[in-house]
């Protein structure tokens, strides 16, 4: 029987993880009303840790992504004499893909790992059990606030990322490469659609990514073996699983929503 378990391949294991993760999501959702009723403060605090504290990296990366995007696109578009479209293409690619995806990947690395390690250590040092014994439901006090914080923080971070990206694109395109300022903006505003690009790209996509990353991070922390090796491994898994989930989900969302 042991041999059978060892022969369990990666597919079976992953499926088991996904199933357990789904059940865990249901538990979190069930605990959410309680969490909001009794531990809103905790959600606010987590929003500070996973959201506000991630602002710097998000802003810096957004700026650079916008800048390099403008540089690359200008080069390619100049071949076709279409440099006037630089602003448009920068905006569209940030809103639809790069903004939500890069923000989510950065978020998984910056906040997701922190969540996993924190919860994993809380379990390893019996803090979770201590809460249970103080009649504080750790699902409502620990899991749900972090999940909600991730869910709320990622779209906001993505908005900031995108705004900085546009700014960076403008900086390179207009200030440096000399595209006409009016051309840059008017082409952008003529093409970018609020619903199709900003709401369904920046907002919906990153909301979905936020849910996935936060769920994976909390789940991995919650189920990590209570050892230093277990926590370390769970942290790694958070990054790997989130990255795969983000990119796969991105494809699915793009295919079906847009």
């Amino acid at each position: 029987m042991n041999a059978r378990i060892e022969r369990d391949n990666i597919v079976t294991q992953s499926l088991g993880q996904i199933g357990a993760c789904g059940l865990f999501l249901l538990q979190i959702l069930a605990a959410t009303p309680r969490s909001l009723r009794r531990h809103v403060r905790e959600t606010v605090r987590q929003l500070w840790f996973v959201g506000a504290m991630s602002l710097t990296i998000i802003m810096v990366c957004g700026l650079f992504v916008g800048m390099v995007l403008a540089l690359q696109l200008y080069h390619v578009l100049s071949i076709f004499g279409g440099t006037a479209a630089t602003g448009t293409v920068v905006a569209i690619s940030i809103y639809r893909e790069l903004g939500p995806v890069i923000t989510a990947l950065l978020f998984a690395g910056r906040a997701g790992t922190a969540i996993t390690a924190e919860i994993g250590l809380m379990r390893a040092t019996d803090q979770i059990a201590a809460m249970e014994l103080m009649a504080v439901d750790p699902l409502a006090y620990v899991a749900a606030p972090r999940f909600l914080a991730g869910l709320i923080a990622l779209p906001l971070l993505c908005c900031v990322f995108s705004a900085l990206g546009i700014f960076g694109g403008h900086l390179v395109g207009v200030t440096w490469l000399g595209i006409d300022n009016g051309t840059f903006w008017s082409n952008m505003t003529a093409t970018v659609d609020v619903w199709q690009d900003i709401i369904s790209g920046v907002v919906w996509k990153s909301l979905a990514f936020g849910a996935v990353v936060a769920l994976i991070a909390v789940f991995q922390g919650y189920t990590a073996p209570p050892t230093s090796e277990g926590v370390a491994y769970a942290t790694t898994r958070t990054v790997v699983a989130s990255s795969i989930a983000i990119l796969a989900l991105d494809f699915v969302l793009t295919a079906f929503l847009m």
């Binding site: 500070w48 959201g51 779209p155 906001l156 908005c159 900031v160 920046v202």
Partner: peptide, 9 residues
């Protein structure tokens, strides 16, 4: 942070 996010949006 929330205000900043919504302002960006």
């Amino acid at each position: 942070f929330i205000v900043l996010g919504f302002a960006a949006l």
